[in-house]
Design a protein around this nucleic acid. Structure first.
Length: 565
RNA sequence: GCGCCUGUAGCUCAGUUGGAUAGAGCAACGGCCUUCUAAGCCGUAGGCCGGGCGUUCGAAUCGCCCCAGGCGCGCCA
């Protein structure tokens, strides 16, 4: 499993007080200090020794196998000099054996997971801020599937509510409209509602009819929201984002399961009708610690339900599907709301989906706003990226057919867009800048892809396919080779940490670092013209292993590794 | 005002959950294509890790207090 098992085994055998999990390896800051380092902090704490004492003890008392040439204490670390060839051969052999599954610990074997993400209101084209939700969600799904979870992806279609009602009001004949028309109408409708109280009131009335289940009203809502949803899903599909289930909010009005929740709230004395005849939950009775956000309105005075009401039913519906892991990706503006929902669910004896939050993508001028036209739409972002990539492809591969050029350009564009958004921790506010977001050089998706094509090119020129097992003679002559091997060996722990933390950004960082280490190797170590046949074979296997790891990492990010670019 | 998130090179971001001399890219400057794809590489320069006090062998990382930005806080979703 671990590349350094022989070291670990020897230590726990000779110092039985230590266990495998007390022993953590790290690459040394400089490779001339050693081939790999063992940290003595954790073990020292356990044996109540000072780290340098334990390091010295390990170096002195443990008798290591032939793979360890030297074990030297260095302060709180033990630096090992290894038989790089023997260890390197084992690393590449393992990667070859596990192939597309290398890096997966199978954490989710036999576990059902339900992930809800995107869930944009069906009234606008997704902008890059919303795309952050979809991309994080989609990559989490890929990460969980990589760890063998059985994942079902849900998209909650908010096909109800005041804003949708207003949109429906101005869409007389949706059949004649396009997705883009609808976006224009949406803005108009909202402006009109602000100025025209009567129009706004009509919206509420329509909403009431919708809740009462009036079939004609329902049909109109569906027509409008379907068109929007199709437009949204088409844009997201270009990025490789797909869903298993579309759950309509309108299917959760007057849900019988809500009664059980209301019952529980009454029992806790937290449900009341306020002076304006609204049905309200006093969350303080359920343990909410602050005055702010204490009240949660479920029903309007006219008896129509608020968003949260339907969301409660929907969440219960998701919980009852029997997934052991229930995840939802939410904008950070939903934090308080999710806590409120969670208190109510808890009071009614339900669990709460685990939340993954992300912060907004801002413009230099400030927040994005669909209504004010201050947005970067995902579709225009993708178009621009594809166009720029196509230019580059045209220069690079003029003889390729236009179709192949286009396909190549799209893969590069998707890589650029997905990587630019995914590599940043979701808690960070990022400022969107066209120049850096559309860059194909430096810390980008295309850079990682480029490393893959270089490897593919070497393997192609070699001609014959490699034997599945690396040869027993496996020379490792340069630090660049060893550095790359160490990096490859770290993939499984990177993946499992990412899965446990529900974080996908570390995978992107890992892919970048791996690509950089490969490039160093590429420039320092000729493969096809290596000095000896043995060295050439070892390097070919190292190339193949690197390609496999990069493919697996990129797969989690939803990025294609290509043969050429 | 209260709560949550963020603050690291001029700019955009990493930093293996408290560990060795804080790392990349972009921008700038200087080099490298008869040599496996220059969407690349090498080099130079760039740091009070927002500020202060603490916790300990040891802090960018943990705690408290400030400062700045983002988000949220009763008939929007």
């Amino acid at each position: 499993m671990n590349a350094f098992d022989t070291i670990t085994d020897a230590i726990v055998r000779d110092i039985p007080e230590l266990r495998r999990e007390d022993l953590a390896f790290a690459p040394p800051p400089k490779l001339d200090m050693g081939d790999v380092s063992l940290r003595a902090f954790e073990g020292a704490k356990k044996l109540s020794l000072k780290p340098p004492q334990l390091a010295a003890r390990i170096a002195q008392e443990v008798s290591f196998g032939p793979e360890v040439a030297e074990a030297r204490p260095a302060g709180p670390y033990v630096n090992f000099r290894l038989d790089r060839g023997a260890v390197g051969r084992r690393i590449t052999a393992e990667i070859a054996a596990q192939g597309d599954a290398f890096g997966s610990l199978g954490l989710g074997e036999g576990v059902k997971a339900l992930v809800e993400h995107t869930s944009i209101n069906p009234n606008a084209s997704p902008h890059v801020g919303r795309a952050r939700n979809a991309l994080i969600g989609d990559s989490l799904v890929r990460l969980l599937r990589f760890e063998a979870y059985d994942v079902e992806v849900h998209y909650y279609v908010n096909d109800m509510g005041r804003q949708i009602a207003l949109l429906v009001l101005v869409c007389d004949d949706p059949k004649q409209m396009t997705f883009d028309d609808m976006l224009v109408r949406y803005v108009e409708a909202n402006e009109r509602a602000k100025a025209d109280a009567e129009f706004a009131e009509q919206g509420y009335e329509l909403l009431v009819r919708m809740e009462e289940g009036d079939s004609e009203t329902k049909r109109r809502f569906h027509e409008v929201t379907d068109l929007c949803l199709q437009g949204q899903v088409a844009v997201l599909g270009r990025l490789g984002i797909h869903y298993d289930c579309f759950d309509r909010e309108s299917d959760f009005v007057k849900d019988p399961r809500l009664e059980k929740v209301l019952e529980a709230l009454r029992a806790r004395g937290s449900l009341f009708t306020d002076e304006d005849e609204r049905l309200v939950v006093d969350l303080q009775k359920l343990g909410h610690p602050y005055e702010e956000g204490r009240y949660f309105v479920l029903m309007r005075a006219n008896g129509s339900s608020m968003y949260g009401c339907r969301d409660l039913s929907y969440t219960i519906d998701k919980l009852e599907r029997g997934a052991a892991l229930n995840l939802i990706v939410l904008g950070e503006d939903h934090k308080l709301y999710a806590q409120q929902l969670s208190l109510i669910l808890e009071a009614a004896g339900y669990a709460t989906p685990e939340q993954v939050y992300y912060a907004y993508i801002l413009l230099k001028e400030g927040k994005m706003s669909t209504r004010e036209g201050k947005v970067v739409l995902l579709s225009e972002f993708l178009d621009e990226a594809t166009q720029r990539a196509a230019q580059k492809v045209q220069e690079q591969w003029p003889d390729l057919s236009p179709e192949d050029q286009q396909a190549m350009a799209e893969q590069v564009a998707i890589a650029a867009v997905r990587f630019a958004i995914l590599r940043v921790n979701p808690t960070k506010n990022v400022i969107f800048e066209w120049e850096s977001a559309l860059s194909f050089s430096g810390d980008t998706g295309p850079y990682v892809q480029y490393s893959c094509t270089r490897i593919a090119s070497i393997l192609r020129k070699h001609g014959e396919s490699l034997p599945s097992e690396p040869p027993s003679a496996f020379p490792v002559s340069e630090d660049a080779e060893w550095g790359l091997l160490l990096q490859l060996a770290a993939f499984p722990e990177t993946v499992s940490a990412a899965a446990e933390n529900r974080a996908v950004a570390p995978i992107a960082q890992y892919a970048l670092e791996t690509a950089r280490k490969f490039t160093t190797f590429y420039h320092q170590c000729p493969v096809l013209t290596a000095e000896t046949g043995e060295l050439k074979m070892a390097r070919l296997h190292l190339c193949q292993a690197t390609l496999q790891v990069l493919k697996n990492a990129l797969g989690i990010l939803g990025i294609e590794a290509m043969e050429r670019m």
